[in-house]
Design a protein around this nucleic acid. Structure first.
Lengths: 359, 359
DNA sequence: AATTATTTGTGCGTATGTATC
DNA sequence: AGATACATACGCACAAATAAT
């Protein structure tokens, strides 16, 4: 033997080597304790120690009177990837998960799921749960991504343990990490550009204030305006947050929304859950889309074609984003550290909620 | 000491007892090996064996030169519950998962997710993945539940390992297991009954053929007819499967659907994904709901109120079903074996897709 | 700063028990 | 019944880390 390593460790390595080189195939009997002791001129006690540790690690199985055997099913590898999403009612969530699951399950991984309901304390709970699981990677849809995050230290802890973390839909401000996201600035840009090309100049916008996606889409909205030399009027912008979302677009707020849209000929609307409600409000007032108001939405979910008015919308990559996220995660697991950024390009889907401006 | 158990096992139990009774609080030093050996009149070797096993189990931590200590963070328990769903695009899926997650995360469990896309081979893959994970329980939304299942042996394997299995949305035919489900017969019944009470006698039905839910809703449909002495006409029943679903209700099939509905004044429609498409087809022909056709749907998802016609529908318990499923799972884990059946009652939500029959 | 006692880690030898073939 | 192989158990010696003197 070699070096000054403990003899029982040397024997362990020797046995593992034999198994890995297939000189001791699965299920085979290994030499008896006495044989090993004799061969390496060590005591049987020392042999037993090496074997007992390998048994504990699930590599070997001992059977009194029969012998010691190489375990057929190697250690049950954990192969879990943690996935944290925000508000699971997020209507594009199932597509994303499906994409992730598709890739991961093919590679022998499973998804461990947690949802935050877009609340920091729930996010923390998820992270702490996953910390106890032996996950191999973490994919996180950011919670209230436009705000500073109080759970950064936990994310650091994962990285300290060499567990790669991948953010979806934008990472936290000022926190450097791998991320995969739709190019939301571009999405906001092409949505607005489409309306401008149809002759619209009075373009209202509804955006989400506590998600970075809302900020980005707004930025695209602004860029399209600037590029075309159209001034942006603050009165045409409405912001909403996770908390007042239900209220602001409920039945009781119909008049407020109508008033907000009064002076505009078109609307860039944050997502289809909101768009559906806006369409309802407008229809109830006897107004029509796109004649009275052209509307561009985002995501291209089931809801985009659920209404009689089929929405013109900027399609979110959804399932494809999930697939790419999973592939990137596998790469990160393989290659170890490094910060990756993947940006996915959105596409405009023109249906019949938009038309040339009237008058 | 006692009995004829191996001495090292007796010592292990003694130490575990001390820890559990808090006589050796977390982080404390336990007596040294020599002290224990002396106290119990056993050799130090035997003491070491007991301690080394406890170290391996994560109960103790040894430190050369310092001593042996009770581990502060007891073994990172796995606490994973496997959840298998069918086609994840199932539009009520997010709600169910949210319900499950809500309960499980509060109890320190995480969800391991897999989806089958309603295909048996994918279901098998999920089960095999979970077999390798050390899951504590399994909640399964049945795949093609009306057909015999080729993966029964795998479910048996879980039960052999004392991992409780809970089926959602009906268990497999002829397989006795715990299950939690909406009372779909009742759902079909109250949907049909509602139409009958509005004076309808010519009630068409669209049902899914390869899910047991489709069969059950159809059964309720039949019962309501029988009870009211109305004959069922086979020509008013349309069946569809997972595979021909997209085709049967796509644009190209509009005429076929219209022809199918020609002689009926109302429709009981399997779910809202289908209902939305039927509504579209009808609207394109210039017909109106509920004047020309009253429609009752199932599930009460986002889609039910997405269209201009707000659907009368039988509300699926969704989130509540998820919550109940998770609670039942926790109970099964605690109490061990036993077969539980939980039936949840659906409720009719009357909106404006149904009206009194004309003429 | 060096010494010493304590505690765990490594290693050998031996004996007996028990399951399997 | 006997040989073989693992399981339990005792005793001893020395190494290495730690803490207290």
């Amino acid at each position: 033997m070699e070096q000054d390593k403990p003899k029982y460790l040397q024997l362990k390595e020797y046995l593992i080597g034999l198994i890995e080189n297939n000189e001791l195939p699965r299920g085979n009997k290994i030499p008896s304790e006495n044989e090993l002791a004799e061969k390496f001129h060590i005591s049987r006690h020392t042999v037993r120690r090496a074997i007992s540790e390998l048994v504990n690690e699930g590599v070997l199985i001992t059977s009194q009177g029969k012998g010691t055997f190489v375990n057929n099913e190697p250690k049950s590898r954990q192969n879990l990837i943690g996935v944290i999403t925000t508000y699971i009612g997020d209507y594009i969530f199932p597509s994303i998960i499906r994409g992730i699951d598709q890739v991961l399950s093919e590679n022998g991984y499973s998804i461990a799921l947690g949802c935050t309901n877009n609340q920091f304390d729930k996010e923390r709970q998820c992270l702490e749960n996953f910390m106890k699981q032996d996950i191999k990677g973490l994919i996180v849809e950011t919670t209230k991504s436009a705000l500073p995050n109080p759970n950064i230290e936990l994310y650091d802890e994962f990285r300290k343990r060499n567990i790669p973390v991948l953010f979806m839909h934008g990472s936290y401000k000022g926190y450097s990490a791998s991320s995969i996201y739709e190019d939301d600035v571009e999405a906001g840009y092409i949505a607005t550009k489409h309306l401008i090309e149809l002759g619209h100049r009075k373009i209202a916008g509804i955006f989400k204030i506590d998600d970075i996606q809302g900020h980005a889409r707004f930025e695209g909205y602004c860029r399209a305006h600037r590029e075309s030399g159209i001034d942006i009027n603050d009165k045409r912008i409405m912001w909403f947050g996770t908390d007042d979302m239900l209220y602001k677009f409920g039945k009781q707020s119909g008049d407020m929304v109508i008033e907000f849209l009064e002076d505009s000929t078109s609307l860039v609307c944050y997502n289809e859950q909101i768009s559906i409600k806006v369409i309802d409000i407008i229809r109830e007032k006897g107004l029509t889309i796109p004649e009275r108001l052209s509307l561009v939405s985002f995501d291209d979910s089931e809801l985009a074609v659920a209404s009689e008015v089929k929405m013109t919308t900027v399609a979110h990559p959804k399932e494809k984003l999930g697939i790419e996220a999973a592939n990137l995660m596998l790469k990160m697991i393989k290659e170890g550290d490094g910060i990756f950024k993947v940006k996915m390009t959105p596409e405009l889907v023109v249906r019949n909620s938009t038309g040339r401006v009237n008058g």
